[in-house]
Structure formats: C-alpha cells, structure tokens
Amino acid sequence: GGVAAVFRKHLPITKHPDLCSDDVLVLALNDVFLVSIYLPPASSPAYRAYEVSPVDRLQELAGLAATLDMPMIIGGDLNARTGNLTAGIDPPPRSSPDLTVCSRGRSLL
C-alpha cells in the first residue's frame, strides 16, 4: 500500500518527509504544497492500523498551508463525495453526474 506522485523530471519538486505519514505524501513545487493522499472510507477498519490518521494529517496540513499562506493542491482517493457542492468564496461551478454528498465530502469542503 501507499501513495505516489509521477511528475516531469525537470520540475523542482521536493519531498517533505517530516510532513508525510502512511498514505500521505507531501511535496512542494516552489511555493505550492502538493499532497497525494488516500483516505479509506470513514467506516473502514484500516484506521486502526494508522499511527497518524491521514484525515488528521490532512487537517494539520490545511492549517499549515493557511498559516504559511501557501496554496495546496490535493490529489488522490479521499472517498469524499461532494455532488455539486463547492467550497470557498465564489468557487467555479461544478457539474457532477454523481449528486450524492457523503459526510466525508461535506467535511472535506
């Protein structure tokens, strides 16, 4: 198990091992955080095996990025269904054929 990122060699991407944990890979490209993450479904027994919950780590990273005023791009499988809801002020509209919103989706937004 785990997560990975594939990128063009010429990009100045660095890994932040201190911010990484199981299923959370934290990279930086200049002043942007790039996060590759897997969040098992909320009810999954997988959470018992984590030393650091990837949900908690994502929350910490969002706080850190806000404190440092660094944008953060998150990619991965978050098991978060958000339907057509959007987050933030004046976000671009979203049109998804999946209209279901789950609790993880709501908390992610």
Binding site: G2, A4, A5, V6, H10
Partner: peptide
C-alpha cells in the same frame, strides 16, 4: 516510466 518522468513514493508496510 518514460525517461522524462520521476516518481516519489510514500509506502506503507
């Protein structure tokens, strides 16, 4: 992986 790409992993036991 094509030569112009790199991969960074965070593996889990």
């Amino acid at each position: 992986l094509p030569e112009q790409f790199s991969i960074i992993e965070q593996s889990r036991p």
